[in-house]
Design a protein around this nucleic acid. Structure first.
Length: 427
RNA sequence: GUGGGAGUAGCUCAGUCGGUUAGAGCACUAGAUUGUGGAUCUAGGGGUCGGGGGUUCGAAUCCCCUCUUCCACCCCA
């Protein structure tokens, strides 16, 4: 009986594993050079943890089960609640600021589609305990630093940045009632996916004033915070929020990634818990879903029973990223090389197997990678194997050993070979 | 959860007005090549045509159900 793989999961055969490692290794390297340290938690938690942050509707979107002790558990669909729990548990002992990263394997019981599977990896970085918007800028920078290191330029990807706080005060400044905000957010968030007429129609259902709608439409089209004051009369609250976001852009400019970044009021993000800057990185064409997203969430720790501590962070999944990298041809042969070897040992007859095995052990003990063929048949076959394993060098153990105690060492790239004394080799 | 496209060898696919023993390229294995790799040539293995049911003398082909996958919605932490 053949059992298929489960819907929305992937098997990582060596070539796919090479891609995954390429992505994950890059994430870790970027985290470390940006001054983050790694953490991880369990892959399942109490179901309740996810209900706290996302409500009861979330239950049907994650994999949950009851253990033999009657505990209601869920496989983690995100790691932020775990982070909040872990930080809260040791909040007084942890030196601040907390700059942590993780690359958790996550599961969500959603219908799979392009760029979204039921099991995936997600890079998370978070800075906890820094109120300055410099931390927000750093989170954006870190994401872009990674993408840039892969060879993605500002023509390939764009960081669209906004601010929940600014959005709220601007909308109220132009005459939107506070209790209308929550119904408007999803509409603004959809703007980039729908025709302009549809956008206006949706606004008309919520807003009576044609002038206010007109102002919103205009605001949605601007891509620099500098243009906002000329379009809206700002009160002190709004001016403060604007200054804050301007500072984020100023920092990003200083960090050298200003050309990747632009203001976009259409970035709202689904989660209600964002309190300040929010951002998403998209492919420049806008054909894929977001590559990454994040923002400031100042009440998350307190939602999980901890103190009110400010935080900002970002998550980036591997699915969309891989699609983009393939589209841009950035998964090179070098990055996808499944195996490389320092040495491959070929021997020309069964009488040399003992010598070859001893040599193999000596090379491996020296910390170098080495492989050999289980068959001593045709030398050509063994050379072929050496080639397919990407061996840098091939050692031929044969008559030279009995005649003059020498090994043939062949450089597979140049094709040149030399005779080396067997006793002094690697010693 | 809703709607649409697709499923034939490990991969990419051809093959349907229903008809003999289901094909190609790539990949894999072996040989040409028993002391020299990437190339070439030759041969071979590998398929219950996604699964189940139905129509029929006869189904990869037509019908129904189901599973998987892709795409668009819902949602997106």
């Amino acid at each position: 009986m053949k059992i298929p793989s489960v819907k929305g999961t992937r098997d990582f055969y060596p070539p796919q594993m090479a891609v995954r490692n390429f992505i994950v290794d890059g994430w870790k390297a970027a985290s470390i050079r940006n001054g983050f340290v790694e953490y991880d938690g369990p892959i399942f938690e109490y179901l309740q943890m996810y209900q706290i942050k996302s409500g009861d509707e979330i239950v049907e979107q994650l994999f949950n089960f009851e253990d033999r002790g009657g505990r209601l558990l869920a496989i983690r669909p995100e790691i932020t609640p775990t982070l909040a729990r872990m930080v809260n548990q040791q909040i007084n002992a942890l030196p601040r600021p907390i700059r942590w990263f993780s690359v958790p394997r996550l599961c969500r019981a959603e219908r799979p589609q392009k760029g979204r599977l039921r099991e995936f990896f997600q890079w998370n970085i978070d800075i906890i305990g820094v109120e300055d918007v410099l931390a927000d800028a750093e989170v954006v920078y870190c994401s872009l630093d990674y993408l840039r290191s892969l060879g993605l330029s500002s023509k390939d990807v764009k960081a669209k940045i906004s601010s929940r706080r600014l959005l709220a005060v601007i909308l109220m400044n132009i005459g939107i009632a506070k209790d209308k905000l929550e119904t408007l957010y999803p509409i603004l968030d959809k703007k980039s996916k729908i025709p302009d007429e549809t956008f206006v129609e949706m606004l008309q259902k919520e807003i009576n004033s044609a002038q206010i709608i007109q102002t919103i439409v205009k605001l949605m089209d601007i891509h620099s915070v500098d243009n906002i004051p000329s379009m809206v009369d700002l009160n002190d609250d709004a001016q403060a929020a604007l200054n804050e976001l301007s500072q984020v852009f100023a920092y990003l400019e200083k960090m050298g990634v200003g050309d990747y970044c632009r203001f976009d009021m259409g970035i709202v993000r689904g989660l209600a818990y964002y309190t300040g800057m929010v951002f998403e990185v998209h492919d420049a064409v806008g054909q894929l879903r977001a590559i990454c997203g994040g923002g400031r969430y100042d009440s998350l720790l307190s939602d999980f029973g901890g103190p009110k501590v400010t935080a900002t962070g970002m998550g980036m999944g591997d699915c969309v990223l891989e699609i983009l990298l393939r589209q841009k041809g950035l998964l090179t042969d070098e990055s996808l090389k499944v195996q490389t070897l320092d040495y491959f040992i070929a021997c020309t007859g069964a009488e040399f197997v003992d010598d070859a095995v001893a040599l193999m052990a000596r090379i491996r003990a020296a910390g170098l990678s080495c492989n050999y063929s289980y068959k001593t048949a045709a030398l050509g076959k063994q050379m072929k194997q050496a080639d397919s394993m990407n061996a840098a060098k091939c050692i031929i153990v044969g008559q030279e050993l009995t005649q003059s105690n020498q090994l043939v060492v062949k450089d597979m790239k140049s094709g040149e070979q030399e005779l080396v004394d067997a006793d002094t080799f690697l010693r």
